[in-house]
Computed example of a mutant assay.
Amino acid sequence: MIISKFYYLRKNLYSMAELVLEQVIMLGDALENDDYALANEIVDRDDMIDELEKENDNLSQIAILEAITNRNILGMGDVDNEIVLKKDPLRFALSAIRITRNMERMGDQVVNCAEVFRYKTIRPGIFKKEEPMGLILSRVTTLAGMAVESLVEEKERFMGSVNTIEDELNGLCDEAFKKYRESEMNKTEFADVYRIILALERLGDYAVNVAEELVRLNTGKDIRHLENAKPPKV
């Protein structure tokens, strides 16, 4: 019974991740091609992500209870720490809750962008012809792809690259904000461009959260906020 629960949890988690990545790719296409019908489709598809989130939450809670009561049956009491880290169903179920939350928030940011874009207040071509907006879309898609691939493989191998791309994304978002703040955009257009920039930056942050959770799942190390914890240089 417990094996089937974890099978369905993994299956749903992967389905949710792939659906979120599809939404990110569709968003890039909608923005770059000024495709407002596609933006509407992105918004409509968000219900599928929400349903998977609910299913994953329920499956995770059931899996946690079953893992606690069946740890000895699964042999988790007599194995070395490395196997426990990578094979412990309780650890996976707890991580699945955190990953599900971050995936759902990634989906929310995609929808936030699509909803703003379909107002048609932003001039055509800005996301395809102007830098740094095109670069921002590229970095966001790459981060989402790395997070999903790492999740499906249950590995943390992209972590270094993820941090590098996140830094690039943050710099590009700052650059874009300054560029359009100093441009001749009217207030409504600038406000909507800024909302999209902010949502894309947050989308990248949630993708990084998924990658960080995979490090914790595979190694037991919590690497969040490590830079802030470093002592100041003298």
Rank of each mutant, 00 (worst) to 15 (best):
F6T: 04
F6N: 06
F6L: 10
K11F: 09
K11A: 12
K11V: 00
L13W: 07
V20N: 14
L21F: 09
E22K: 12
V24C: 13
V24A: 14
M26P: 00
D29C: 00
E32K: 13
D34H: 07
D34K: 07
D35E: 04
Y36K: 02
Y36N: 02
L38W: 02
L38V: 03
N40V: 01
I42P: 08
D44W: 03
M48G: 03
M48F: 09
E51L: 08
E53N: 14
N56V: 01
D57K: 13
D57Y: 14
L59W: 09
S60N: 03
S60L: 06
A63H: 04
I64L: 04
L65K: 13
I68D: 08
N70Y: 01
R71L: 14
N72E: 11
N72Q: 11
N72K: 15
G77A: 15
D78S: 15
V79E: 06
D80F: 09
I83M: 12
V84R: 15
L90I: 03
R91N: 15
A93P: 03
S95V: 13
A96N: 08
R98T: 05
E104G: 10
G107F: 06
Q109V: 00
N112D: 13
A114E: 08
E115A: 09
E115R: 15
T121C: 05
P124T: 02
G125A: 04
I126D: 06
I126S: 05
K128S: 15
K128P: 00
E131I: 03
I136L: 04
S138V: 04
R139Y: 10
R139V: 04
V140R: 08
T141C: 14
A144P: 05
A144G: 12
E149K: 12
E149S: 11
L151I: 00
K155V: 09
K155P: 01
M159H: 12
G160P: 02
G160R: 14
S161Y: 07
N163H: 14
T164K: 14
D167M: 08
G171S: 12
L172C: 01
C173H: 06
D174L: 15
E175V: 00
E175K: 15
A176Q: 07
K178A: 15
Y180M: 09
R181T: 11
R181V: 11
R181N: 14
E182G: 00
E182Y: 01
S183E: 08
S183K: 06
M185E: 06
K187A: 13
T188G: 08
I196E: 10
I196T: 07
E201T: 01
L203Q: 11
G204D: 07
D205Y: 10
V208S: 05
V208W: 03
N209D: 15
E213W: 06
V215P: 07
R216H: 09
R216G: 03
L217M: 15
L217V: 12
K221W: 07
I223V: 15
H225V: 00
P231T: 08
P232T: 07
P232A: 06
V234Q: 10
